[in-house]
Design a protein around this nucleic acid. Structure first.
Lengths: 111, 111
DNA sequence: GTAAACTGGTCTGTATTACAGACCGGTATG
DNA sequence: CATACCGGTCTGTAATACAGACCAGTTTAC
């Protein structure tokens, strides 16, 4: 394969990849939330194996992006944080999934 | 979903993600090479849209990882760089693809 | 009652890294 | 002579992932 086929290709054969979701730590979080629809802090901490600080930080970023909703409540005076994917978040994940499948399935069709 | 189902989960339900391939720029490179088996610098530059410096740098990292083979030759006194996926690289990509599919297809089976 | 542990963080420091762009050497072209 | 092309190297910058220290408030253990 040489390059002289077309002078200016610019073919975005590859879709943009959502870096917010792409980051493995957040990908784990989002993928988990996608199936359970709602999970608390401890659940995510155990599922992802992230440290509390790190998990909190990633949740903050997902919240800033509008991908998750964070609800803080008290259960018997004990703090309880519940995280839920927003519609935007679900769509973003589905879109990301589609992008990645496109990339990973590029077995021949390119051109 | 609450967290009190199991005391210590540690379930690596999620496979490790190869960060070398995971990086979008390199993912583009590897995915392209996977289908064409061999491509030159210009081809990759156009397909990925990366700047020369950046592309060169990513190629260097892929080479260090043993994922690609870089052959430098001269065609009529003009430098020509040809890049090819090594067997290791092909395997790494396939493994990565499997990992990502596992993550992206986690629609129910988890537990 | 004091020490320890738990929840859910904040903050700091560190180390990595992606990226643009300047520059360069050599060749070819106008 | 100036410009452009190929394939880089190098520098600087900005972002960021991550660990771990620390903290407040609560509960449990001794």
């Amino acid at each position: 394969m040489t390059s002289d086929s077309k002078p200016r290709d610019d073919s975005q054969a590859f879709p943009d990849i959502d870096r917010i979701i792409h980051e493995p730590a957040r990908l784990m979080i989002v993928a988990h939330l996608y199936v359970v629809t709602e999970g608390d802090f401890l659940f995510l901490e155990r599922q992802t194996g992230l440290t509390r600080g790190n998990l909190s930080s990633h949740l903050g970023k997902l919240e800033s992006a509008g991908y998750i909703d964070i609800r803080k409540e008290f259960i018997e005076k004990i703090p309880h944080t519940v995280v839920r994917l927003t519609d935007t978040g679900r769509q973003a994940f589905e879109s990301y999934r589609l992008s990645m499948r496109t990339v990973l399935d590029s077995d021949s069709g390119s051109h």
